[in-house]
């Protein structure tokens, strides 16, 4: 836990600096909370990418707390904001449980460039490390080089990989992979998909088909459909979650690139608006840099100074 905190916290340094310095300055001075100060809070929160709506919800809540006299001084302000954010996100933390089925089939979806393939590589490594047999299928048959990229990751985590040449039918490949994973009694099968912008009707239909086909090969599968989200994405992330969820019914979200300069604030509205668990977060380029999401740690790392 300490290691995770440290890691996440070093990754989130930027977020923390931005959030705490402004919030700190705001209330370390004596005086009342006037309009300017409210606007400053708004700015800090909006700059974190949590969006204007969430920022306003928080601000209204702060105002309410001030009215009831619960927030009186600067140190308390930060405490309450943190508490509120943890509350908002606490319902969304639950990791993957691959023991519920064998093979446990995970389908990974997302828009282009969010880090789907790398995330699959890290997931495979994680399952492998816990003694599971893992099979990957390179169903991103569209993007040039995607299959080769997954092969490299498969080798790194010594997972088995099922592939076909670029341009072949991803659904057919997924079907074959499920059959083969069952025949070889694999613990986990992870199905990669081509990145697609959620506004492309045909590509979203293709995704629905893939899900159906996997379900035909094995009733009840896929057991998990994960959307991979880039933490640097702005408010567009909300429509990504909405549209992918409507198309295939998401069971989980993985947020990547949280170690960057992005503030990751988009996690807040996603967690509070959708009842979809945030399974994991990506905090680096290394193969083990994928950790469980904990609202508590996440918020602490966002706000706390060095421990």
């Amino acid at each position: 836990m300490n290691r995770l905190f440290k890691r996440l916290s070093s990754g989130l340094t930027k977020t923390r600096e931005a959030l705490t310095s402004a919030l700190g300055n705001l209330f370390n001075k004596e005086g009342v909370i006037d309009r300017d100060r409210i606007e400053q809070i708004e700015e800090v929160l909006v700059l974190s990418d949590m969006g204007l709506n969430t920022a306003h919800v928080l601000i209204e809540w702060v105002k309410g707390e001030i009215a009831t006299g619960r927030i009186k001084d600067p140190s308390q302000f930060r405490y309450y904001i943190k508490m509120r954010l943890k509350e908002m996100m606490s319902g969304n933390q639950s990791g993957l449980n691959p023991d519920t089925n064998r093979p446990y089939i995970i389908m990974v979806v997302g828009v282009n460039g969010v880090g789907k393939t790398s995330t699959i590589g890290k997931l495979a490594y994680k399952f492998k490390s816990s003694g599971k047999s893992v099979m990957l299928t390179a169903s991103d048959t569209f993007r040039a080089g995607a299959i080769e990229q997954l092969e490299v990751w498969a080798a790194r985590s010594s997972a088995e990989i099922i592939k076909q040449k670029s341009g072949s039918d991803p659904s057919a490949l997924a079907y074959d992979a499920v059959i083969s994973a069952m025949a070889r009694e694999k613990h986990v099968l992870i199905v990669d998909t081509a990145g697609r912008l959620h506004t492309k009707y045909n590509l979203m239909e293709e995704l629905k088909k893939m899900k159906r086909v996997i379900g035909k090969a094995l009733a009840g599968a896929p057991h998990e459909i994960i959307l991979v989200l880039d933490a640097t994405t702005g408010q567009n992330a909300l429509s990504q979650v909405r549209v992918f969820n409507e198309a295939v019914g998401l069971t989980g979200i993985i947020v990547t690139k949280l170690d960057g300069t992005a503030k990751g604030g988009i996690v807040v509205p996603i967690a509070s608006e959708f009842k979809i668990p945030i399974r994991m977060i990506g905090i680096g380029e290394g193969i083990s840099d994928l950790i469980d999401f904990r609202a508590e740690e996440f918020v602490d790392a966002m706000f706390d100074e060095e421990r």
Partner: peptide
């Protein structure tokens, strides 16, 4: 740069 980037877009471009 990705057009869907949020508030971080300017930080990226600036660095």
């Amino acid at each position: 740069a990705d057009a869907m980037t949020g508030q971080d877009a300017v930080n990226i471009a600036e660095s």
